[in-house]
């Protein structure tokens, strides 16, 4: 069963308890920054006088995982998108691919890693809420089964329609995410992507990559066939030339004989 989190922005007071819990859990000692970075796996961004939690949203079919050439980014069945630094070659294609700008890179390290919220897999695999959800005093960050959270979110919207923008961000953004949002205002005003459509981003490249075997076969066939045709034409031409030369020689010999007679 896939786990998820529901972040209710109407309930968030901006107390940063989640941020501090994350910093403690992941031993992030650098001074906290305003944006996601190699030492900030979750931050509160202020938009429209609202505190918007930023973190890895743990897509159901993540662009980063589809992009990674060595499968160092993998979505686990429980929901967390895991990163394996021992596989990673540091190409940073995951950072290019992520539509939410989440993965951060250790730019000043000699052995750099890609850093992001891991959705505390040690907690999530056991069904326990991650520290950021436990720390939240106002139930602005809820942890649970993803399906149950969607039901709870719908119930919240139905119960107080005047309070909520009618929609759950993340239910089907680019294939859906594990971390979903409820908001009082349209989601694009919070800086959340609303232009992505329901298809996972990896499907667009996947459709093109599906053409690879056919393209390879076509190129080889066309070139091989062309080569064979040209060879054949040249061989025929050579034979004809040879035959013509032989005829010519015969004729000349005959003429010579007749001339001598």
């Amino acid at each position: 069963m896939s786990k998820g989190m529901l972040i209710d922005i109407t309930a968030c007071t901006g107390c940063r308890a989640c941020v501090n819990a994350c910093r403690t859990k992941n031993r992030l000692d650098a001074p906290p920054g305003a944006r996601l970075s190699e030492t900030d796996f979750t931050v509160l961004e202020h938009r429209d006088r609202l505190a918007v939690r930023r973190m890895c949203y743990h897509c159901n079919d993540p662009a980063c995982a589809s992009a990674c050439p060595v499968a160092a980014m993998v979505r686990t069945p429980e929901g967390p998108v895991a990163y394996d630094e021992h596989r990673c070659m540091g190409c940073r294609y995951c950072m290019v691919a992520c539509p939410h700008g989440v993965p951060a890179f250790e730019w000043h390290s000699r052995m750099p890693r890609v850093r992001k919220c891991a959705f505390c897999p040690d907690h999530v695999a056991e069904g326990r809420p991650p520290p950021c959800a436990t720390a939240c005093p106002t139930e602005a960050t809820l942890f649970g089964d993803r399906d149950a959270l969607i039901k709870a979110a719908t119930a919240r919207i139905d119960a107080r329609p005047e309070r909520y923008y009618p929609g759950i961000w993340g239910r089907d953004v680019a294939g859906g995410t594990s971390v979903m949002f409820l908001s009082p205002v349209p989601f694009d005003r919070l800086g959340l992507r609303t232009d992505l459509g329901p298809d996972p981003l990896g499907h667009a490249t996947g459709r093109i990559l599906a053409l690879v075997p056919g393209t390879a076969a076509t190129v080889v066939t066309v070139l091989g066939g062309t080569y064979w045709l040209y060879r054949r034409r040249a061989a025929v031409a050579a034979e004809q030339a040879l035959a013509a030369a032989r005829d010519g020689a015969d004729a000349a010999a005959r003429e010579g004989r007749e001339g001598g007679r």
């Binding site: 050439p69 060595v70 190409c91």
Partner: peptide, 9 residues
């Protein structure tokens, strides 16, 4: 380590 879904692969 293969990831045939990846264009970079």
């Amino acid at each position: 380590y293969w990831n045939p879904n990846s264009a970079l692969f």
